[in-house]
Design a protein around this nucleic acid. Structure first.
Lengths: 108, 108
DNA sequence: CAGTATCCTATCGGATACTG
DNA sequence: CAGTATCCGATAGGATACTG
């Protein structure tokens, strides 16, 4: 079914998955999904992120072509926007199922 | 728009996001999405995963109510299945946009 | 077969202080 | 304002060997 098999070790899709496999990428993408933002705006929008991690996350997203940068102005690229939908679904799931997750943890 | 705001630092959805914020959770969920599997089957299905990480990932998913366990038989719970759709979309995105990602990295 | 135990390195991520 | 530099602890993750 899949052209490239996610279950293969050398599959590039694995690398791609790793892109969102960290604490902040998803949240930063969501933040920029609201529109172009300046560094300081993103920093304020996202509670708890440090300047270090914000810079680091933005640089990686930029390096992977998901974010476009002009000085301190950041915005999603077309590629980044296409990820926004997927990531949005993930965030929505997270928000909707938080109770169930918390319950499960408590029961364990 | 969102009941719980993903951008707030103390939002439980953040914790939930962290659940898939690692290398293996998504792949393991995809693997179990194909049906109930035994430990060794999952290990063989997923290239490159170590026994240590498989066990660790399965335990965490179990603790969070996404995976049900009976001895060495594992399967997704209803909650886990609901995540499968979302995670599937993510995996599909990863597979579809691999080329663009690779190009972007090369250009950088 | 299904793990556990141990060791090791790399990365994650926060705190703080500094710079142009 | 928009970072960079440095230090620190915690976790991720691989390799290998061992156990019932």
């Amino acid at each position: 079914m899949s052209a490239s098999d996610l279950f293969l070790a050398d599959c590039p899709a694995r690398t791609t998955l790793a892109l969102v496999g960290d604490t902040w990428s998803v949240v930063v993408i969501m933040a920029l999904g609201e529109g172009p933002r300046r560094y300081g705006e993103v920093l304020e929008r996202i509670g708890g992120i440090s300047k270090k991690m914000l810079t680091q996350t933005l640089r990686r997203l930029e390096r992977n072509g998901l974010v476009d940068r002009d000085g301190a102005d950041y915005r999603l690229t077309a590629l980044g926007s296409s990820l926004l939908d997927v990531v949005g679904a993930l965030a929505r799931w997270a928000e909707e199922h938080t109770d169930a997750l918390v319950d499960a943890q408590a029961a364990a």
